[in-house]
């Protein structure tokens, strides 16, 4: 980059920052108006707090077995009852929040980072590179996602890490498509032209200008996707392809508790409710964001 262009670039940046700030404020103002979305956000903050403080909040350890109190119903001693090995369900759900949130965030990040990079490249350069990348994405998309994950976990071996890899790979084409189309829509804008004119390199343009401007749709999709991945993970657990014992992953708890549903209903019901609340919260926030960020929906 030559020196004479630097101050110009600088002023361009400040201008953009200011714009972004006001847009952020505007978005927040509109997000706040939506009470359902706001309650979703509150739930998410609470969940994050529970996950972070799990060690302190949980009354017992993850794998504290006590055969003298197997299948204890919910009550004073154990608020949400105990399981077939006499472990406190509430404690396991609290510890499990870390796993379920990690699954959501890590798998979505895998998809976002790899898929995002591929999509940004494809969209920015177009031509043959675009064709090759997007045809590969089409191939993955033609295989139903859940089945692809089943095959992949079967091949890699069922455990938490592989589950995250499989679900993450699954999300790659999803994000590649979204990011490609938003990159394509912003790359012709004036400020990109301007940056190019002052000699900024491709990578720099993508990182500094294109990605921040495709941020809105990606944020919405990523939020919604986190919810989806938690459900997919639970489905894999149902088929015995989930986290390994004694990990208190919610899907695994739910799936393990299903055989006791008619006698010890709490074993499957509470992890199920935990999943439902979490996924619901992500969806409400995602939908709220979508509304708040969509200029067409302004009234």
């Amino acid at each position: 980059m030559n020196t004479s262009a630097a101050p110009q670039d600088q002023s361009l940046k400040t201008e953009k920052r200011r714009k972004q700030r006001t847009r952020l404020q505007e978005t927040w103002r509109r997000f706040r108006k939506n009470r359902w979305a706001l309650s979703g956000l509150v739930l998410l903050v609470l969940l994050a707090a529970v996950a972070l403080g799990a060690g302190v909040i949980a009354p017992e350890g993850v794998d504290h077995q006590d055969f003298t109190r197997r299948f204890a119903p919910p009550g004073q001693e154990n608020l949400l009852g105990t399981d077939n090995l006499g472990r406190d369900t509430l404690s396991r759900i609290i510890h499990g929040s870390r796993l379920s949130l990690s699954i959501g965030f890590i798998t979505t990040s895998i998809g976002l980072i790899i898929g995002g990079t591929l999509g940004a490249f494809a969209g920015f350069y177009g031509g043959t590179r675009d064709q090759i990348i997007m045809r590969i994405m089409d191939v993955i998309l033609a295989i139903p996602g859940f089945i692809f994950a089943v095959a992949l976990v079967t091949a890699l071996g069922p455990n938490l890490t592989n589950l995250m890899i499989a679900v993450g790979v699954n999300s790659i084409p999803y994000f590649a498509r979204i990011i490609r189309s938003s990159v394509m829509s912003v790359k012709e804008y004036e400020y990109i032209e301007a940056a190019r004119a002052i000699g900024a390199g491709d990578l720099r343009i993508i990182a500094k200008h294109v990605i921040p401007n495709s941020f809105a749709p990606i944020l919405v999709q990523a939020t919604l996707r986190i919810g989806d991945t938690i459900i997919i993970a639970a489905g894999l657990s149902f088929l015995g392809l989930g986290a390994q014992p004694p990990l208190p992953e919610w899907g695994a708890m739910l799936s393990g508790g299903r055989q006791y549903l008619r006698d010890a209903w709490w074993m499957a019901t509470f992890p199920g409710i935990a999943i439902m609340i979490t996924v619901l919260a992500f969806n409400l926030v995602g939908d709220g964001l979508r509304d708040a960020l969509d200029p067409r929906l302004k009234n």
Binding site: K33, W36, I231, G235, F238, L261, M276, V279, L280, L284
Partner: peptide
């Protein structure tokens, strides 16, 4: 009924289905 209670309520109801692992709902 955009931005009313009904808007959110309808979305909430529709979201319930996708938020439940479907084997759980099935059982």
């Amino acid at each position: 009924r955009q931005y009313t209670f009904w808007d959110g309520g309808a979305m909430f109801t529709a979201l319930l289905g996708v938020s439940m692992p479907n084997f759980w709902l099935g059982l």
